[in-house]
């Protein structure tokens, strides 16, 4: 674990840096993937950028609304660089809304755009794992397996390493599938299925799971639901493709 890069009095948070590198590399994959699907890579990358800005603004405003009195007294705190003062759900919703509006205005077709994003998303997931390894977050359950690592005062599953390995496998598969994409939407749904299956497996070894219904792990239930929906969607699109075969680029 190596969460902070200390340069003099400047404390750089390594996890954040890793996420930025992952995002940066993902934009290259968008540029590579876009021409194959008849979408402009520049427009999709702008979509990512605006969604991020929108997400950040929404997350901070959502957080501040929850503590309205405090921020009313001290409005400058709205622009504080503290990443803890962000509300994730509000951020995700506003990022989604901004992305939708932008996609509508630029007339981006939904399924090809999602396909363009799939390789980038799967590479970004590898960097999320690296960020977790650096910060020690998303840590494993206490265990006695021979490859356990000492973390947070206990011998634990190296869940961050599992996470990186699973994400790398998913990335490899998506990379392989990207040139064999059968119909529009195939690549994105394949990524969604694989990512959900990966999380379903990984979560069993995590030591920080949110627990529901007397012992079941929330992330696993959500992952299984997403996996099943993605499989249904794959079937529906495959059927539609069969009944109206369209030329693929």
């Amino acid at each position: 674990m190596f969460p902070v890069l200390q340069i003099g009095s400047l404390a750089l948070r390594l996890p954040g840096l890793l996420l930025i590198v992952g995002l940066w590399l993902a934009t290259f994959l968008v540029d590579r993937e876009a021409p194959r699907r008849g979408v402009s890579g520049a427009v999709v990358n702008s979509l990512i950028f605006y969604a991020l800005i929108g997400g950040l603004l929404g997350a901070r405003l959502g957080y501040a609304l929850g503590y309205f009195d405090v921020y009313l007294k001290n409005p400058l705190a709205l622009i504080s660089l503290n990443p803890d003062a962000l509300a994730p759900l509000e951020g995700a919703v506003s990022a989604g809304i901004v992305a939708l509006i932008y996609a509508q205005r630029k007339r981006l077709p939904l399924r090809p755009t999602l396909d363009v994003l799939a390789p980038g998303l799967s590479l970004f997931a590898v960097f999320v794992g690296l960020a977790h390894l650096s910060s020690g977050d998303a840590y494993g359950a206490v265990t006695q397996v021979p490859w356990a690592i000492e973390l947070w005062d206990a011998m634990r599953h190296p869940a961050q390493v599992y996470e990186i390995l699973l994400a790398a496998i998913v990335f490899g598969l998506i990379w392989w599938l990207s040139s064999r994409s059968a119909f529009t939407g195939f690549l994105f749904l394949s990524w969604l299925s694989l990512a959900a299956a990966g999380r379903l497996i990984l979560e069993a070894f995590r030591g920080d799971s949110a627990i529901v219904l007397g012992g079941l792990r929330l992330a696993q239930l959500v992952s299984l639901a997403i996996l099943m929906l993605a499989l249904v969607a794959l079937h529906v699109l495959a059927k539609r493709e069969e009944s109206s075969p369209a030329p693929q680029s």
Partner: peptide, 12 residues
């Protein structure tokens, strides 16, 4: 798998 990995005390 979800059932098998239901939480023992060490998991939270």
């Amino acid at each position: 798998w979800i059932w098998l990995s239901a939480v023992p005390a060490s998991a939270t």
